[in-house]
Amino acid sequence: MSSENQYVQKNAGYLRGYTRSRNSGAPAWWMQRITGLALVVLTVGHYILMHYNPTSGHDYGETAARLASPWFKGVYLGFITIGMYHGLNGVWNIIRDFKMKSMWGQTLFGLLVVAGLVFIAVGWNTILTFDPLKP
């Protein structure tokens, strides 16, 4: 009994970071499953589109033809966003396995958010500003 209490007193600083979370983590847990199942569907489609013949994923003309469709563009904007969210939420789950002072946890969380937003922006920019006529 006493050793547990001593443990809590000694580590009150970082335990606080875990116990005073604003939510239980359940919404993120649900989102990880839902986005994961969506990504299975999207990734199967992506693999078929990119590999049904040797050039389909590597040829500029075929890429341009796909990007001419607004439906394709819309799905891929979602694909980038969902993939980034699922991946970085997964990294955050792994980070939370480790004993970490809450300052470190918050710093890494911030880095993940910034990296995610920057690369979502890069991906959206590629799709939205693509010009098939550029030489």
Binding site: I80, T126, P135
Partner: peptide, 22 residues
């Protein structure tokens, strides 16, 4: 999972060359 998120960053970065033309 760690391997895939690293690849996703590389993938998005590499394909941004689509905006540089044919």
């Amino acid at each position: 999972g760690i391997g895939l998120i690293v690849y996703l960053f590389v993938h998005i970065w590499a394909l941004s060359s689509l905006t540089k033309g044919h």
